[in-house]
């Protein structure tokens, strides 16, 4: 009973969040979290549920973002059309890719997605007439306030969670799971695995493309290295999935929150806390140590990847029982 209510309570909290917390900074972080919920859910559908691990979500994300940006610069439309067309172009990229590459399995498929990621980035860099290459695309944001962006992101996040939920509760969901568990068995039961993998990929690509278009609208600037980034987008998407919980409904939502928070924690050096504390202590070595930590934020992020995979392979949601057991045991021992 309580468990069922948690998503609704979370949603209610998210609805009032920007009305309570007026700080632009925290609203910005929450918008990012919600964007990652969309991408994470999409990744979770294709990788977590269907078992086809994608290392190239940035290809779809960047396609969506570039679609939104090019609609403005080339056609003079509003970038918000990108939310619709971004998803479509991402699907247009995903369809031939999936058709070719779904004959590959496991690690081969993961490599193919990685290659797609790289190819898209090179195209965006080299095809300067269309994409302006490394100059990137700059558009004027529609709203000065963060509130509209926040609610649009929230709506998209909710839509993507509902989409994944509906898909997984339908016949398709069971087909996806059967492909993940044993592709040959699924095939021998008469499931057209290629077909259903394509459906899963198309849904995932559409959602990721929409998230990309949202990014373009919100940030107002993109270039190939930002939106086709392997580390910042593709790997981050996997991390959101893994830290949250692979193959769980709300895992990506939890993962998105944790990952954005952690990334920001590393980037700002504990929200500036570390450097403040260091200055307060007055010791030279501690100050230089705090600078070291702040400078090494990407390294910290990498270490986090390593630690998360080692100790939380099924994510916070997937390993929830394990975590609670550990905490409870400590309490019992302590008490």
């Amino acid at each position: 009973m309580v468990k069922k209510a948690v998503p609704f309570i979370a949603l209610a909290a998210l609805l009032v969040f920007p009305l309570v917390v007026k700080s632009d900074y925290y609203q910005h972080l929450m918008i990012l979290v919600l964007m990652w919920v969309v991408i994470g859910s999409a990744w979770n559908l294709i990788a977590g549920y269907t078992g086809q691990v994608s290392f190239g979500d940035a290809a779809f994300f960047g396609t969506g973002a570039y679609t939104a940006g090019l609609l403005v610069t080339k056609l003079g439309w509003s970038a918000w059309w990108g939310l619709f067309f971004g998803g479509i172009t991402a699907v247009l990229i995903a369809m031939p890719f999936g058709w070719i590459c779904f004959r590959l399995r496991g690690a081969y498929f993961a490599l193919a997605t990685l290659a797609l990621n790289e190819i898209m980035r090179h195209i965006a860099t080299i095809w300067e007439k269309l994409t302006y290459g490394m100059l990137g695309i700059l558009i004027v944001q529609t709203f000065a306030s963060k509130l509209p962006y926040y609610y649009i992101s929230l709506a998209l996040a909710v839509i993507s969670l509902i989409t994944v939920r509906l898909v997984m509760r339908s016949k398709y969901g069971y087909y996806f799971l059967s492909i993940r568990e044993d592709q040959d068995a699924a095939e021998s039961m008469g499931i057209n695995t290629h077909h259903y993998k394509m459906i899963s990929l198309v849904i995932a690509a559409a959602l990721t493309g929409v998230a990309g278009a949202l990014y373009m609208n919100y940030m107002g600037f993109i270039d190939p290295h930002v939106v086709f980034s392997l580390h910042d987008i593709s790997i981050m998407a996997i991390l959101v999935g893994i830290v949250g919980g692979v193959g769980t409904q709300y895992g990506p939502a939890v993962g998105a929150f944790i990952m954005v928070a952690v990334q920001e924690l590393f980037r700002t050096g504990g929200y500036g806390l570390i450097s403040k504390l260091a200055k307060a202590s007055g010791s030279e070595t501690i100050i230089s140590l705090s600078e070291f930590i702040t400078k090494a934020h990407v390294m910290g992020f990498g270490i986090l990847v390593v630690v998360a995979i080692l100790f939380l392979p099924n994510g916070v949601v997937g390993d929830w029982n394990k975590i609670t057991r550990l905490v409870l045991q400590k309490k019992i021992k302590g008490g």
């Binding site: 990788a47 977590g48 078992g51 691990v53 290392f55 496991g106 690690a107 993961a110 993940r180 580390h231 790997i235 996997i238 893994i242 692979v246 193959g247 990407v298 390294m299 992020f301 990498g302 270490i303 990847v305 390593v306 995979i309 080692l310 392979p313 099924n314 997937g318």
Partner: peptide, 19 residues
């Protein structure tokens, strides 16, 4: 470690590469 995805090791190498 028991996981749903077999690609954990690959992902781990990505993390190592980053570090």
């Amino acid at each position: 470690v028991e996981t749903i995805l077999p690609e954990n090791q690959v992902l781990m190498t990505v993390g190592i590469g980053m570090v």
